[in-house]
């Protein structure tokens, strides 16, 4: 398959539909994400961004439409199987294993590829998983905190740990749900650097509210409003689009 820019398509959503009671949360959304791209999804609160993520990861079953990942139909697969196929998600509300050490948090994610349900040898023997965990911690800059309990980290550190856990499953596609939420300008800048670094070997789809971040690093932007795809294009096109400005960008530019 080929998508925008002539690259292969990694993720394709076809006419996804999801209702919650009387609310059409996601209304016939099409989405194509090219391999190696950084794709941002923006929209006002309640426009269906997180629901769209949940439809992709299998948290929520779509009422209509299909999800294709790497030419494979993954519609309705349970979350853990989708993760195994190579989609990882970082959480909007940081979710880590509080009473385990930082290292252990990442190591548990790292061992899932090869040793998911082993109980006949100690986990500390899994050298490859430990090495991957070390590398991942180094990548997000938490190496020095590896022995700390995850519950003792600061907010910014927790966001990075959250990301490290997602990365340690060695995904092909990373879904980031508001990666810079609640961060100071300095922390935001560090996270932006990190995301740009990740792009070297990953495809990233991110939900983000900070427009300056989105316009700076995204290659393509999808704008959602009331569950409907309003527009999709490059940052320049989004910036110049009158209806996008009308519903979303007022005051942000």
């Amino acid at each position: 398959m080929s998508g925008p820019n002539g690259r292969t398509t990694l993720l394709r959503c076809e006419r996804l539909d999801r209702w919650f009671g009387g609310v059409h949360a996601v209304d016939g959304v099409d989405l194509e994400v090219a391999t190696g791209s950084l794709h941002a999804i923006i929209g006002p609160n309640g426009s269906g961004k997180t629901t769209l993520f949940n439809l992709i990861t299998g948290h929520t079953r779509p009422h209509g439409g299909r999800v294709w990942f790497a030419d494979r139909d993954v519609t309705g697969l349970p979350y853990h199987r989708v993760v195994r196929l190579g989609i990882a998600k970082s959480y909007q509300i940081t979710t880590v294993f509080q009473s385990l050490s930082v290292f252990e948090n990442v190591r548990i994610a790292a061992q899932s590829a090869r040793w998911p349900y082993t109980f006949w040898l100690p986990a500390s023997r899994l050298r490859d998983a430990s090495r991957l965990a070390e590398q991942t911690l180094e990548r997000v800059g938490l190496q020095h905190r590896r022995r700390e309990l995850a519950g003792n980290l600061s907010h910014g550190e927790l966001r990075h740990l959250d990301l490290a856990i997602a990365l340690a499953t060695r995904p092909k596609l990373l879904l980031l749900d508001e990666p810079t939420a609640g961060m100071s300008p300095a922390e935001t800048e560090a996270t932006v650097q990190l995301i740009q670094d990740l792009r070297r070997d990953l495809t990233v789809v991110m939900i983000e509210h900070k427009m300056d971040v989105v316009l700076r690093i995204a290659e393509r932007i999808t704008v959602l409003n009331f569950g409907v795809k309003l527009f999709e294009g490059t940052p320049e096109e989004v910036r110049g689009h009158p209806r996008v400005q009308e519903v979303y960008l007022q005051g942000a530019l």
Binding site: P116, A123, S124, A166
Partner: peptide, 24 residues
Amino acid sequence: ESPLGRVLQAIRESEERARGCGYN
């Protein structure tokens, strides 16, 4: 102390996240 036992403890902390690591 095994990988399975560690996942068991991880589920106690956050089942959602353990599924997000690819575990049933």
